[in-house]
């Protein structure tokens, strides 16, 4: 049985004028760490709200922990842990008060499922009497996770938990998720950051309400259909502009230190060809190599393919 399942889910807002979720289907297996990856406005939050039963889909069906999101919403509400995107706890309550409150709301106590949250809670319990409003971003996030876990949910739904959190806290957060997965909890997490995709077992790439692909991160990268070249020089901007004017280049875009280049026709000597061309136009210290595509490269490829349809 799948822990989460969506079948042809549609959701529109503003009397059908804004399409938020467009025929989305995917399944999350029991005990899986599944990532929903896409930019702001892709429809991630709507999907989460449909799964947590606080929003009704226009069409399609979905289930969480084996229960239908419409008919059996009460059963779901007992079984999911949920961190909404803008969730920020009660700023004027202390760590302990927040946790106790959510424990009671879910009809349990901190002690009952202490094992589950122990590892996370131990990191913040020294500050038990500090108000949530006075905590750092990383600590708030840990507390929020504790609150979502307090009733030992079967499925954990985390909507953009790492947005606005610094790199150190983000890394710690993903480590915590891995721990939770070890304990058998199914986790569906969304993020706009492509670099976090590799930390999931499987991912769904989503844009404009449409799923572009559902795969393991490795397979998504493997499925990249063409060779990707990376290039840099003393003046990357000039090099980029020059390549864009080159007939043999299908697309060229900036991507950090090395820009990415895709050529129109694969050729064993593409590197030499590109290099010669670049040097002819006065670029110095040109370095060109074949590079493994990242999730982000794939996302760009897939969304451009989608756009050309």
């Amino acid at each position: 049985m799948d822990a989460v399942s969506l079948k042809n889910i549609h959701k529109t807002y503003d009397k059908g004028n804004v399409i938020a979720v467009d025929d989305v289907s995917f399944d999350v297996k029991k005990g899986e760490l599944f990532g929903l990856i896409g930019p702001d406005g892709a429809g991630k939050t709507s999907i989460f709200r449909i799964l947590t039963t606080v929003l009704l889909a226009d069409k399609g069906s979905a289930s969480v922990a084996g229960f239908d999101v419409v008919k059996e919403y009460r059963a779901i509400r007992n079984r999911v842990g949920y961190m909404p995107g803008k969730f920020s706890l009660y700023q004027d309550l202390t760590i302990k008060e927040n946790l106790e409150f959510f424990a009671t709301v879910f009809d349990t106590s901190i002690e009952e499922n202490y094992d589950l949250i122990k590892n996370i809670y131990d990191q913040i319990s020294p500050f038990n009497d500090r108000r949530a409003g006075k905590l750092s971003g990383g600590m708030k996030q840990k507390l929020a996770l504790c609150c979502a876990l307090i009733h030992k949910p079967e499925v954990l739904l985390l909507d953009e938990p790492t947005t606005g959190v610094d790199a150190v806290s983000r890394k710690e957060f993903w480590d915590m998720l891995k721990d939770l997965k070890q304990q058998g909890i199914t986790i569906l997490v969304s993020t706009p950051y492509m670099d976090e995709a590799n930390l999931c077992e499987r991912i769904a790439l989503i844009q404009n309400g449409k799923i572009l692909s559902v795969e393991t991160p490795e397979n998504i990268v493997k499925a990249f259909p063409v060779t990707l070249y990376a290039a840099k020089s003393d003046n990357n901007y000039k090099l980029l502009t020059d390549f864009r004017n080159f007939d043999a280049v299908a697309s060229a875009y900036a991507s950090g230190e090395y820009m990415r280049i895709i050529v129109k026709d694969e050729h064993p000597d593409s590197i030499t060809l590109l290099k010669d061309y670049a040097e002819k136009f006065g670029n110095r210290n040109v370095e060109i190599k074949i590079i493994a595509p990242t999730i982000e490269d794939n996302f760009i490829w897939l969304s451009q393919k989608e756009a050309n349809h």
Partner: peptide
């Protein structure tokens, strides 16, 4: 505004 309402709605409360 805090987003806690969403969590409360999802809870059995």
């Amino acid at each position: 505004e805090l987003g806690t309402m969403e969590v409360l709605l999802v809870s059995p409360f």
